[in-house]
């Protein structure tokens, strides 16, 4: 290439950069949505409320606190104060609730350690409370039928949405790369006249498009990665590069690594198909 990115090549390059940037940005967004959904689901399932049924009085609350401190699966337990209850009711109901208006509460907020799927968490806690002389019930997070499980849907939408968007970008790259083959029409014609086979001709054009795609994909992916870092730093108060480095998992970087390869493959395939078509036209007159 005598001049760096002249004419159509420059337009193609920036189209591919945009496609890579958009695909990586959406994929990183999907990863963020996935991780938020996982985190939300963990918080939701690791939280429960214990309601003390019997006996009544402060002694029962103290006994329940003692029992919960040693109960299996429980990582922390705290009696719900009137102020905390008023705040929650206000948050859920939308209207002001005065803590003084609330009756004496017999509730505990507990946080749970992740448990195996077959474990009877609620039963174990109720049993531990019973051993401490307290009759209680555990109110856990609602199941899917009660409006829970939204995180799973969000994760599926994020995954398939990002995949569909990446596929759309691949089609755009595929079509844009055909323009390169059209630009190389004279070269294809010459090569055909000089006895190059269709695969030789198409391969040469495809190699050029794939190399352009690789570089453009790399540029687009790096730009998207930088943009994602900036957005995270703006969105998370007090976030520093060090804290972000600890937050980011290797799998989060997968879209950045995959984009150059994906763009190179799509560009190469598009250019190859178009060059092969031009070669067929050039090879046969009759």
């Amino acid at each position: 290439m005598r001049r760096a990115l002249p004419g159509v090549e420059r337009a193609l390059f920036w189209t591919l950069v945009f496609a890579a940037f958009a695909a990586v940005a959406v994929a990183l967004g999907a990863r963020a949505a996935d991780r938020i959904a996982v985190s939300y689901e963990q918080q939701r399932t690791n939280y429960a409320i214990v309601r003390v049924i019997a006996p009544e009085g402060q002694d029962a609350i103290n006994a329940a606190q003692t029992a919960l401190n040693t109960a299996p699966h429980v990582t922390s337990a705290a009696p719900m104060t009137a102020g905390r209850a008023a705040a929650l009711l206000q948050q859920w109901g939308g209207s002001d609730v005065a803590a003084g208006d609330l009756p004496p509460l017999r509730l505990f907020e507990i946080e749970l350690a992740p448990a195996e799927a077959q474990a009877d968490v609620n039963g174990d806690i109720v049993a531990a409370l019973a051993q401490g002389g307290v009759t209680a019930e555990v109110v856990g997070a609602p199941d899917t039928g009660s409006g829970g499980g939204l995180a799973g849907v969000v994760r599926q939408i994020a995954l398939w949405g990002a995949a569909a968007f990446a596929a759309l970008m691949a089609v755009i790259v595929w079509l844009a790369a055909r323009g390169l083959a059209a630009r190389r029409r004279e070269m294809v014609t010459v090569m055909c006249d000089l006895g190059a086979t269709q695969s030789e001709t198409a391969g040469r054009i495809a190699d050029e498009a794939a190399m352009t795609g690789l570089v453009a994909g790399l540029v687009g992916a790096i730009l998207a990665g930088i943009t994602a870092l900036v957005v995270l730093m703006l969105a998370i108060p007090g976030a520093q590069l060090e804290t972000l480095r600890d937050m980011i998992l290797p799998i989060d970087l997968l879209p950045i690594a995959a984009a150059p390869i994906g763009v190179a493959i799509a560009a190469g395939a598009g250019a190859r198909a178009a060059a092969a078509s031009i070669h067929r036209q050039a090879a046969r007159l009759g």
Partner: peptide, 16 residues
């Protein structure tokens, strides 16, 4: 294609 490589062709309007 292999035969074409043994043919030199000067077109009326050569393509380059």
């Amino acid at each position: 294609a292999n035969l074409k490589k043994r043919i030199g062709y000067v077109a009326e309007n050569p393509v380059f």
